[in-house]
Design a protein around this nucleic acid. Structure first.
Length: 502
RNA sequence: GCCCCCUUCGUCUAGUGGCCCAGGACGCUGGAUUCUCAGUCCAGAAACAGGGGUUCGACUCCCCUAGGGGGUACCA
């Protein structure tokens, strides 16, 4: 009857990182797989690191991915509040409990003293730096010091016992007695540390399985020590391998600034970046699922339902992975052909919408088009890798005719070369196009094929000049489809204006 | 420094002592298709970190070395 409850507990310090997204996904899958509950908790105990609006951004990214939570911000639940900043009184009660049961004590060391302890520990080759005072300060002394304005913290009196974490991914990991020092559970500003708040909340929110990044592995013995001191139960733990850049460095927001400084396009790091760059959540999810997990057979493509079916914690690996953007791109390309057309349309509109806020000129114009037109664009651009490719390939169709910019190299190579062969072709084509009875892809293509045949030319000799004339570049969807969607009037206008370049 | 985790093609991985002179996918190389870009199709190259054991037999088990990563905060 004790059903599975998992949680994702981000700090509101920015957008949702792609690595965190995988942690979310695995938690979500675990909950769905076992009919459990997925809880979202905001760990905002460090006021100084709090970033404005980041909670909203994280919620938004989670929803974009389809990682809806069963309890947490905006949906409520029986174990709230789900913001740690609203749970201070709860933490304080448990700190008091520990203080009175003798499991914790007040401590007064200054940063300098602590630094000296660390230096000495290092010199002596010890892991734990903090040396427990003897005798311990009494509760009265601690409270008096605090009342006097001193910087006072509360530390856990860590028992001298080996602690073994039974990790569902890594197996048994034992930390010897003495390796865990008397760490701080309550900061001098009165707020609990991460360790303390986390343990209290996991207990009070009845969390049964903690699935988190491997950077937390060494925290787990601390959490277990805390659970024992508080009389709490210990959830099952599993620590996920870490995800790195291809060069082995950590994927961090700073990568974006670095690339910008070098004049390179910034890499996608946060979930939101991938959304803005034109990736489908289906592809992102599918790709990150395979970073550390595999179904055990040769299947590679999974939607959330299929993933839930196939997922198990036992098939999660132990080794760190590198984030191969080429493979993600390939997944996105494939997913764009796998999703239903309504879904693709919705995804494309979402892409345009987030890019409207991103100072794109074409995005708002395209977003204003009726669905029927956007569907047509999607159809003639089939084969695109990201949604952004659609805009670069077909966006010119929606620009005002007069704002088409003609790339000099394209004009030179396709229109002017060989004694203005391209220009001559356009002059020849213009009246024929104007006279065409029906303006749609098939008759346009038929006309062009006829011209090719008459002049004994390859299709490129007729399609390329037209392409440059209407788009200003050498890249567009198939020429018949392009002219058809553009419309006869604009096509003619653009051909005429390109002729003036001669 | 100390503690902990990890180690199969460039990358993500399959492989739980013989089915493996190691399979799939991305990427790469070559070819095909085409009006550009993209896509699609076919073919190919490409790995068990090194050294010791254990065993009739090791990618698979043990040890050591090397390499990579995480932690070592009044951050989470």
């Amino acid at each position: 009857m004790n059903s599975m409850r998992v949680r994702f507990a981000p700090s509101p310090t920015g957008y949702l990182h792609i690595g965190s997204a995988r942690t979310v996904l695995f938690n979500w899958l675990l909950a769905r797989k076992h009919g459990g509950r997925f809880i979202l908790r905001i760990e905002d105990t460090d006021r100084s690191r709090h970033v404005e609006d980041s909670v909203q951004k994280i919620l938004d990214d989670l929803r974009w991915l389809g990682m809806q939570w069963d309890e947490g911000p905006e949906v409520g639940g029986n174990c709230g509040p789900y913001f740690q900043s609203q749970r201070l009184d709860i933490y304080n009660r448990y700190v008091d409990q520990l203080l009175h049961s003798g499991h914790a004590y007040y401590a007064f060391e200054t940063p300098e003293e602590l630094e000296a302890m660390r230096a000495r520990a290092k010199a002596e080759g010890r892991t734990a730096a903090y040396i427990r005072p003897d005798p311990l300060p009494t509760i009265e002394q601690g409270q008096a010091a605090r009342a006097a304005g001193m910087a006072v913290v509360v530390r856990l009196a860590t028992p001298a016992l080996d602690i073994t974490v039974e990790d569902d991914i890594l197996g048994a990991v034992t930390l010897a007695a003495g390796q865990v020092e008397d760490f701080v559970i309550q900061k001098s500003d009165g707020w609990p540390t991460y360790h303390f708040a986390c343990v209290v909340d996991d207990e009070l929110m009845n969390i049964t399985h903690v699935l988190r990044g491997q950077e937390h592995l060494m925290n787990t013995p601390k959490h277990m020590a805390l659970q024992r001191a508080l009389g709490f139960s210990t959830p099952r733990y599993a620590h996920l391998p870490v995800i790195f850049n291809m060069d082995g460095s950590k994927m961090s927001k700073r990568d974006k600034e670095k690339a910008l400084k070098k004049g390179e396009p910034p890499p996608e790091i946060d979930v939101h970046d991938f959304r803005v760059a034109g990736y489908l959540p289906e592809a992102v999810l599918n790709f990150i699922a395979l970073l550390g997990w595999s179904p055990g057979d040769d299947r590679e493509f999974f939607d959330l339902g299929e993933m839930t079916q196939a997922f198990s914690i036992g098939r999660v690996g132990k080794t760190n992975a590198k984030f191969d953007r080429e493979k993600l791109l390939s997944f996105n390309t494939t997913w764009a052909t796998r999703v239903a057309s309504d879904r693709l349309l919705a995804a494309f509109k979402d892409y345009l919408a987030v890019n409207v806020a991103n100072q794109s000129t074409i995005a708002p114009i395209m977003l204003a088009q009726p669905d029927s037109i956007l569907r047509e664009v999607l159809r003639i651009c089939a084969g695109f890798r990201t949604l952004a490719d659609i805009v670069t390939k077909a966006g010119f169709i929606f620009l005002p005719d007069e704002s088409i910019e003609y790339a000099p190299e394209a004009v030179k190579k396709v229109l002017a070369k060989n004694d203005n062969a391209g220009f001559k072709m356009l002059e020849d084509l213009l009246p024929k196009l104007e006279a065409l009875p029906e303006w749609s892809a098939a008759p346009i293509d038929a006309l062009l094929a006829t011209v090719c045949e008459e002049k004994q030319l390859r299709m490129g000799a007729v399609a390329q000049p037209l392409r440059v004339a209407v788009s200003g570049t050498t890249i567009s969807p198939a020429i018949g489809e392009t002219l058809a969607l553009l419309g006869r009037e604009p096509s003619v206008i653009r051909i005429r204006q390109s002729l003036r370049l001669r």
